[in-house]
Each structure stands twice: as structure tokens, then as C-alpha cells.
Simulated scan of single mutants.
Amino acid sequence: MTLEIGVDSTFAQSVVDRLQSIEDRLASAAFADTPFVTEAASHIINAGGKRFRPLLVLAASQLYEGADVDATERAAMAVELTHVASLYHDDVMDEADLRRGAESANHRWSNSVAIMVGDFLFARASSIVATLGVDYVALQAETFARLVQGQVGEIRGPADGDDPVAHYLQVLADKTGSLIATSAKFGGMVCGAPEPVLRALGAFGEEIGVVFQLSDDIIDIASDRTGKTPGTDLREGVWTLPTLLVKAADDPADARLRELIGRRIDDPDELAEALALMRAHPALAQARAEVDRRARLAKDLLTELPEGPARDTLFELCDQIVSRST
């Protein structure tokens, strides 16, 4: 997915220029005392990415005049370094071989190296946040706590008696939505946005973070046009919103599909069968309806923001995220 920036060409170009500056500064932030740590810490950064979180910081920082350029870029660096650090840890827990089309750090070196390099980048992010002020430090710490709790929730799964769908959505809110919410709030904080706007930005970011992950759930099943191999989550037996909805429906007609989902599928014919059954199942439409519902909530929250190209860009980003799964 390529996120186009805004509808105002002057505003869009200023954001592009700032993103390039942040890209250069991210490379510097990964520099360590030894060449090996520098190489390992730069590994995922150099693989690229959408830089969605820095983009949110930049857009929100333009809601009001007066945002300091350097402070804005430091805030954007902090959220992206936090995100990249979490990817090192995720790859260890997922036993991943690839990350952004390149060999994952845990596969290239070891799990221990990947964990420690993730910690190194978390430390770099914390050092940067400390230069912004105590309010930023408090929000970053709260966000980090939610990231950890979301990851633990994913590993442990729902407790007896918990609704698996509600548990899954909470995991997404903690693991993904929390840092995207912080990105939007950091942008508002550097431009001095009033508290009601900061609350709206945080709530918007959390909703759009969940929407982003739910659209990935749908893409994994429905799309052959994204460049990603369809059925990756199905093959690995990973529960996502569509498969959880199938499980929750407990329809006798879904007996074969329920037999296939939630376990690893090594047989290509079985994977093709599972994909075909999921694509024809009402659960996929239900998942799309949830994406649309949350996107509408996110857009409603944006009405609290002052009009202008910054708000227009946030609206457009919301639309583009939703359009990925249609």
C-alpha cells in the first residue's frame, strides 16, 4: 500500500520533505558504539516501510501554527523507533524468517541478538522522548506498557469465559492502536493543540490502528493483488477476525472450515480449500462491516479538529486504509 499524502500539493510536498529528513535521522539514531550493533540496529530501518506513524505525527503537528520543526521530527523518530524495536521482538516470538522482504534479524543472527537490538532501539526512542518533556515521557511509558500487555494477551489467548472476538480486538488496540494513537497525539502536542483535540487525536489513532490490522486480516483472505501471498495467516493457523467469526457462529454447515482454521495447514490443496471456503463465507462481509464501522467512528472524531490540509490528510489516510480491504 502506498499512502498518498493530502489533497493540498504544497502541504503534501512539505510532508514529503520532512519524511526524508526523518529517514536520515533514523539512520543516525541506529548508530551504536560497535559496527555490529549498528548493522543489526539498522537492519529493519534500512528495509524501509510505510512510515505511517511519523506521517501521523507530521500531519497532526500542522493542525495549529507554531510547531517546532526539530521537536516534531524528534517525536516522529521516537514513535518509529519504538515501532521498529517492537518488530525485532515480534519476529522472535513469531519465529519469522522475513521482515519487509528481507531476512529477519533473528534469522540472520539469533533470537538473543534480535531481542537485545530491539531493547537498544527502545532505549534510543526513550532518550529522544526525554528531550521533549515529561508529558511525552509519561505517554510513551503508558504506550509501551500497552504494547507489552497486548503482546502477552496475544500469546496467552482469551481466558475461560472471555469472548474471543472481544479479546482479539483488545489485543489489536493494545499492540497496534496504542502506538498509532500516541503518534497522532504527539503531533498534536508539539503544535499546542487543546486537550479536547488531543483526546480526539488519540481516539482517532487507536481506531485507525485497529482498522489497519483488520484490513490486513481481510487482505490475507480476499486479495490476490497486493503482492502478498494470500492465506498466510490461514496457513500458519493464526486466528484473525474472519476466522474467529466463523468459529463463533458454530454453524454445522461450517464443520469442514472449522476443521481447517486455527491449525497449521501444510497441504497446498487444503490451503486452497480453506481460502475458497473463507472467501465464500458471510464472515468476510462481517469483517468488512466492522472495518467500515470503525472507520466511520474515526472520521467522526476528526470533526473535532480544525479545518485545513492537516485534517484533510487525516481523512484521506483513513479512506486509503479502508480501501485496501475492498
Rank of each mutant, 00 (worst) to 15 (best):
T2I: 13
E4G: 05
I5E: 00
I5C: 13
G6D: 11
S9P: 01
L26K: 02
A27K: 12
T38I: 03
E39P: 00
A40E: 00
S42K: 04
I44M: 06
N46D: 15
L55D: 01
S61V: 02
S61A: 15
L63V: 11
L63C: 04
L63E: 01
E65N: 08
A67N: 12
A71V: 11
T72P: 03
E73G: 14
M77W: 12
T82C: 14
T82G: 08
T82W: 01
Y88W: 10
D91S: 02
A96M: 02
A105K: 00
H107E: 10
R108Y: 14
R108P: 11
W109Q: 09
N111K: 05
A114C: 05
I115Y: 00
V117G: 00
I128C: 09
L132H: 14
G133P: 01
V134L: 14
L139I: 01
F144A: 12
V148L: 12
E154A: 08
D160M: 09
D160N: 03
D160L: 09
D163A: 11
P164T: 13
P164R: 07
P164F: 14
H167F: 14
H167P: 12
L169P: 00
D174G: 05
D174H: 12
G177K: 01
S178G: 13
A181M: 01
S183I: 07
A184L: 04
G187N: 11
G188C: 10
V190K: 08
G192P: 08
E206W: 10
L214V: 15
R225L: 12
T229K: 12
P230M: 06
T232S: 15
E236R: 06
T240L: 02
T243L: 00
L245Y: 01
V246S: 01
A255F: 05
R258E: 10
L260D: 10
L260A: 10
I261M: 06
R264C: 03
R264W: 04
D269Y: 03
L271H: 14
A276I: 07
R279E: 12
R279H: 08
A283W: 04
E290G: 06
R293S: 06
R294G: 03
L297N: 08
L301A: 10
L302G: 12
T303G: 03
E304L: 02
T313G: 02
C318F: 02
D319E: 15
Q320V: 11
S323P: 02
